[in-house]
Each structure stands twice: as structure tokens, then as C-alpha cells.
Design a protein around this nucleic acid. Structure first.
Lengths: 341, 341
DNA sequence: GTGAAAGCGCTAACAT
DNA sequence: ATGTTAGCGCTTTCAC
């Protein structure tokens, strides 16, 4: 069913049908009703491609590129962005990349092709042997884009991030203040900007306090539950001392670590744990431990990234000459129970 | 930049440009290179609306209607669906409804307008005073649709669900086998099909075992952490006995409940907990409790729903005369430590 | 108030 | 191998 067929059935011109569809006031009531009746009867729906081509408008869609939709932190960010988008009458094209370069590239091209109004981009690992042409294309096509939570080296797009280095620096300082023993640092891959920054914050304290090489050890995981568990096993097997100090730079790995720790906690006289980012659940699990952590303002940065994007879209500026890089801070929560020592 | 302008700049016809764009082999190499050079130079991108209108094709998009993207269970389902979709070269339009009827309606209309190839629909509450015209429109427009996890009364679309009633029936039977004390049942709103089925399963056991009205009590929450916490407070305040038996029909509420329980657990000689659906985290929290639970095959039903949808799309059948209603079962995990009594 | 017709940007016969 | 042109379905200007 197209407009022509409807017009014939209603004994009017296509122009009139079009007017009815678009609620043009200057079509006579009787005509309008007749046309509407036919449209309903034959369940006529205008072809949106034709409409947009003709009107020269594009859909209100924004693209959302995410490494792992199933990670609760990203999921919460997506939720915030969805809700904001709905209010502004945008729909979201969701692209789950699993952190893979090729998928980021593929999806970016699709988003450009779909003429999305803007893109919120959470990158995966930075791969130095790749040239990220898709991001250059984004620029070339003047598609408004903002980074969220992570960024890509060499691309100075606007973005909203946690102040990872600073927060990590403070957490490390806090934990080393009370526990000058050997500290284990469980890090994510340094090819991810956020993990890298957290590492740098850790290292900064280590250097400032002149902690010797023997007094700290760094382990690298992949952000997943299992990886935290496995690294935990490893550490617990080899750690001889009866005091344990550990700093885990990521939430999900912390859960995995705690799982294995719970099975072995009796071995230790004193356990001190620092975790970058707390959740309701972690909070419950840590109930009786000594720990240092911080609230993760992940929903906040998500909200801000959307606001930033909307601003870019509405004011149609895409050139990021004066880059807006927003860093979100948070406060450290210190639950080290001094009395117990 | 449109095809005409490019054709002029390259001194060829629009047809030739179109051929280059579509990789038609019968364009001479030299011509091809010239055109490509111009296209690159002016960063030409075909207008996809025009292309689709002309070719009469539609985008490979499927719509995903979800009540709460930030709920980890739904997030995991979305992840599975995204990954499957990517393999089949579909992109996902994500619609977060917060379970609200009006949003479901709004998004459904958008999806129809966008001519999506299919829809996976997780409904929120059933509202009996609404007429769900948008679902009738889906049918009228022959958009392939499948329900996931929950369904809507009166619409016999294909769908994939947990076998809620049966699982709940078994959990209840299991828990009442060993703990014939008063049992509290924390339910979600009965306007949600899955919660309703779980309630029915609970009730079936209650009736079969002829449990008296004094021996059970039902509380209604809203699926959120806080709601579990609050109902927990309520129960713990009023429960006089030193043995506590409770069955929580939902994962997130269970977490909230456990939070308040942990603060009060010393009051009880014996605590038995049943939870509909376990997660890594719950597992850790329940470590030392008596509990009954089951794995939630949420990723499985998500995968199946996508497969079902793809099948409908590829074989373009939309009439759900022989409805495919797939129920997924799971096994009960019983960790009640008999020895301790 | 309504209709005729040009145009949106592209594709695909058909012609050369 | 390349060009001409009639569509795709809708909007919109200009007549009447």
C-alpha cells in the first residue's frame, strides 16, 4: 500500500493524502475523514525512507558503542543514557563490541551509514598497530561523538571520564598509610585507558613513598570474575606472610578475588583490601573486612556524556578544537578498622 | 555531496558513479579509479534513504524492548542477543521502557516506523485497562515478534520463557519438605507474567501440602534491591519465632533481603532461604546459609528468543497460528545442611 | 480546498 | 563500458 493506491481508493490526489498524513489544516473535514477511513482500512503506513528522503531529514538516532553490555557498570550507564535519550526523543542503536577493534570499526561504519545524529563511544583495548580509520571517518563526516569512560590515544574527541589516576593515587596512599606490608596490585590490561590511568595512580604513590620492588607486585587480569578468582588463587598460594594487603583496580575482578579469598581467609591474621569502585553487593561481601574503596560515579559520567553529546548535536559543532574533557572525581571510603590491631 | 555532483566532477554519468559505489565489475578500471578518487576527495557517502527507497530494501535492524537495561539479568540477555545479532549482521535498536505501558507503546510505533525486521519484546506490567493497540499494529504490519521472559495476556505471540510455575512449585516443595515452619514468600507484582507464574507455583505446593493460612505469608515487592531490604526489615521485626523460613522469588530482591538479614542473623537458631535464581554473587553471599535455589537460564532463553526471531524473519512467517511457546527448565540446587539440626 | 508535477538521491532497465 | 531515463514513495510549490 502506497500513497498512490490510497489516493485512488479515496478518489483524491496524492497531495491530499499527504496533507492528511501530515495533518495539514486546510483539508476539508469530509475529505480528511474519507482518506483516514481508507488508510485505516488498508492499514496504510507511509514509507519512512521516502518521507525522509523527500523531507531531507534524518532519524533521531544515536549510536552507543560499548565493550560489554553484560557488565553491570556498563549496563547501568546504558540505562541512564537510554532514559535521557527517551526524554529527548532519541532512539539508541546499541553496538556491543566485546572490546574488539574490528567490531568497533564495523559498527562505526554502520552508524555513519545510518546517519545517526551522534555517537557515544566506549572503546576497548587500544591496538597500536591499528590506524582507527573509522574514527577519522567520523570526523570527516562531522558526526558528533563523545568518549565515555575510556578514550583512544590520538583522538582528542570530547569525553567524560573518571579521574582514574587521581582516585587510584589516593586509594593507594590511603592503603599504604596503614599497611606498609607487601601490596599486590591487580590491574586490568594497560591497553585500556582507564586501567592504565589507575596503574599510573598506583605507581605514583609507590614512587612517592619510595616503596621498594620487593614490597609490591602487579598482576594483570582481564576484568572478568574468573580472572579475579584465578589471580587470587595464584597470590594466595604463594603468599607466605600471615598479613595480606591487596588493591584490586576493578569491581568484577574484586568479586572473583573475594570468592577465593573467602575460602582461605582463616590463613591470615590481617587482611586489608582496596577496591576501585564499590557496589551494593561488594559492600555486603566486605562487611567484616578491612577495606578501602570509593563509590563509582558511573551513572553520572554516563549522564554527562549524553548531555555533552546533546549539546554538540543541538549546536551542531563537531570540531573538537577546544576539547571538553570532563573528569569526575569521587571520595575515598576508608573502612580500615584500626582498633583491631 | 550527492551522486549528481560527483558524476559531474568525474565527468561521467550518475549511472557510472552508482556502478562504482555498488562494485559493478563492468566499469573500466581507469574510470573506477577516477570516480573513487573524487568520492574520497569530497568524502561522498550515498544517501542511505535514497538507496533503500530505490532498492526497496530495509535495514537489518531488530528492535529490543526491555523494562530495565540496568538489571543484570536483562543486561546479560541483551548481551547474548547483541552478539547473536552481530553474527547475523543485524543491528539492535534498544528500547528501555522502565516497564511503562506508554513507553512500550511509543517505542513499538517507532520500531514499526523504522521498518525493523523483527522485535524481541520483554513486557512490563500488564495493565488491564489498556488495550495494547500497538501490539495489534505489530500484527497488522506483519512485523515478526517474539516475547522473551514475560508475556502479555491476550497476545499469543511466539515466545521463550522460564518454566516459572513448575520451577517455583519444585522450589517450594523442596523447602517445605525440610522446614515445615511458617514460610514467608516474597513475590514480585502479579501483573508481571513471570512473577504471577512463580506465585502460582508456590500456591500449588501450598495447596497440595494443605499448608494452613497461618503457616505462610506473602509479601509483594517491586523487584528492586531496596524493596527486598524493606520487606526484610518488616518481616524480621515481626517474626517472633527463632526459626526463619523464606522464599524470595527474585534475585535482586534477595540481595536486598540478605543485606538486612546479615545484620540480624544472630537472632535466629535456624535460617532457611530459597531464592528463585542464583548468581555468582548470591552464591558467595549464601556461602554459610541453608539455601535452596536454581540456576537461571536467562542467557539461554535470550539466545533461543533470537533464534526463534531469526527463523521467523528468514522464513517470513508472522502469523502465529501454531504458537511456539518455549519453556526452559532448570534444576533445583538444594544446599540445606541437614546435619546442622 | 484540491490537483498536477517537479524534485529528494539513488538504482536498474534499456540503449548505445 | 557508459549514458539516458523512468521509477522508488513521499513532499511541496504553484495553479486553479
Amino acid at each position: 500500500m502506497n500513497i498512490k493506491e490510497i489516493s485512488k481508493l479515496a478518489n483524491v490526489s496524492v497531495a491530499t493524502v499527504s496533507r492528511v498524513v501530515n495533518n495539514d489544516p486546510k483539508v476539508r473535514q469530509a475529505t480528511k475523514e474519507k482518506v483516514e477511513q481508507i488508510m485505516k482500512e488498508f492499514n496504510y503506513k507511509p514509507n519512512s525512507y521516502a518521507t525522509r528522503l523527500s523531507k531531507g531529514v534524518t532519524d533521531n538516532i544515536i549510536g552507543l558503542i560499548v565493550p560489554d553490555v553484560g557488565n553491570i557498570l556498563f549496563a547501568e550507564m546504558i540505562e541512564v543514557i537510554s532514559n535521557q535519550a527517551e526524554k529527548e526523543n532519541f532512539t539508541i542503536l546499541l553496538c556491543n563490541t566485546n572490546g574488539e577493534y574490528e567490531k568497533e570499526k564495523k559498527f562505526t561504519k554502520i552508524l555513519i551509514d545510518y546517519k545517526v545524529k551522534g555517537v557515544i563511544y566506549i572503546p576497548g583495548k587500544y591496538e597500536s598497530d591499528k590506524n582507527y580509520t573509522h574514527l577519522k571517518e567520523i570526523s570527516l563526516n562531522s558526526v558528533p561523538i563523545v568518549f565515555l569512560d575510556r578514550e583512544i590515544k590520538g583522538f582528542d574527541f570530547d569525553g567524560v571520564f573518571l579521574d582514574n589516576e587521581n582516585i587510584s593515587y589516593n586509594i593507594t596512599k590511603e592503603i599504604l598509610k596503614t599497611t606498609p606490608k607487601k601490596i599486590y596490585f591487580i590491574s586490568g590490561s594497560l591497553d585500556i585507558s582507564s586501567a592504565n590511568e589507575r596503574y599510573l595512580g598506583f605507581k605514583k604513590t609507590i614512587d612517592e613513598l619510595e616503596i621498594s620492588n620487593e614490597e609490591y607486585e602487579i598482576k594483570y587480569g582481564d576484568f572478568k570474575f574468573d580472572s579475579g578468582y584465578r589471580l587470587g588463587e595464584d597470590i594466595l598460594k604463594n603468599h607466605k606472610n600471615d598479613e595480606l594487603t591487596i588493591y584490586i583496580a576493578n569491581n568484577t575482578m574484586a568479586l572473583g578475588f573475594l570468592k577465593i579469598l573467602k575460602k582461605n581467609s582463616k590463613k591470615f591474621k590481617r587482611i586489608t583490601i582496596a577496591i576501585f569502585g564499590i557496589s551494593d553487593v561488594l559492600d555486603m561481601l566486605l562487611d567484616e573486612e578491612n577495606y578501602i574503596t570509593c563509590k563509582l560515579p558511573n551513572k553520572e559520567i554516563a549522564k554527562k556524556s549524553f548531555e555533552l553529546l546533546i549539546d554538540k548535536i543541538k549546536n551542531s559543532y563537531t570540531c573538537d578544537e577546544k576539547r571538553k574533557k570532563i573528569l569526575c572525581n569521587t571520595t575515598i571510603i576508608n573502612r580500615i578498622n584500626q582498633k583491631s590491631f
